[in-house]
């Protein structure tokens, strides 16, 4: 564990609390992509199967359980409690275009051709693109509630912080590198660049998140 990873994980936690706060206070999941949230459940379940057979640390287990539980809870809120505020007609990204390539990539690139390792790889590849339905929705509507942009910013910061974490680990842990996680992580962080540009130049200056027409 190092500071970058810890702050990254805390940012990830924060993003989930921001999202829950947004849904509960506005009593609405407007502007949130159900597809992206469903992909995150898939990611966490596929990756954290090792909860059943491997113990890393209390921190690790608690975080994994939290990420699974909170992501399932968010789906429940969207699908049942605040269902009328969820508008599937603007959540139109075709996730089969993400799932298919991720299945294929995980079958080719994995650390061992076993069910759990392929699922782990799949979860890494899928996480890297899971935000796309959400960003696509944002692009389509051209605007977002400020709180929703804080959610996305926290998620982006989490991903960005994992990069110095890998550099730090490479230096301090004698050249240790996880090529699958790093490659997918760089792609994932890259997807946030456009968003961050608007976030920093507009939202943090007190303006509404609006994309140019």
């Amino acid at each position: 564990m190092n500071l970058f990873r810890l702050l990254g994980d805390l940012s990830h936690l924060a993003s989930i609390f921001i999202l829950l706060h947004k849904i509960q206070t506005t009593r609405s999941c407007r502007g949130i992509s159900f597809k992206t949230q469903a992909l995150y459940v898939t990611v966490f379940v596929a990756r954290y199967l090792d909860l059943f057979y491997r113990y890393v640390s209390l921190y690790n287990s608690v975080m994994k359980l939290f990420f699974i539980a909170s992501s399932v809870y968010i789906l429940y809120l969207m699908k049942y409690k605040y269902r009328p505020t969820n508008d599937p007609s603007i959540d139109t990204f075709r996730i089969e275009y993400l799932l298919g390539p991720c299945v294929l990539l995980s079958l080719i690139f994995n650390y061992k051709f076993s069910v759990t390792e392929v699922l782990w790889s799949f979860s890494i590849f899928l996480e890297s693109v899971a935000i796309l339905p959400q960003l696509f929705m944002l692009q389509r509507t051209g605007e977002a509630e400020t709180i929703t942009t804080h959610y996305l910013a926290a998620l982006g910061v989490y991903r960005a912080l994992y990069i110095p974490n890998w550099i730090y680990r490479y230096i301090t842990e004698d050249g240790v590198v996880d090529p699958i996680a790093v490659t997918a992580g760089l792609v994932q962080t890259g997807l946030y660049i456009d968003f961050f540009y608007v976030y920093f130049t507009k939202v943090l200056q007190g303006q509404k998140f609006e994309l140019p027409a």
């Binding site: 690790n60 994994k64 061992k112 759990t116 390792e117 996680a181």
Partner: peptide, 10 residues
């Protein structure tokens, strides 16, 4: 048999 990699990151 080769051991499975321990993934210690979240």
């Amino acid at each position: 048999p080769e051991e499975e990699k321990t993934h210690d990151e979240l």
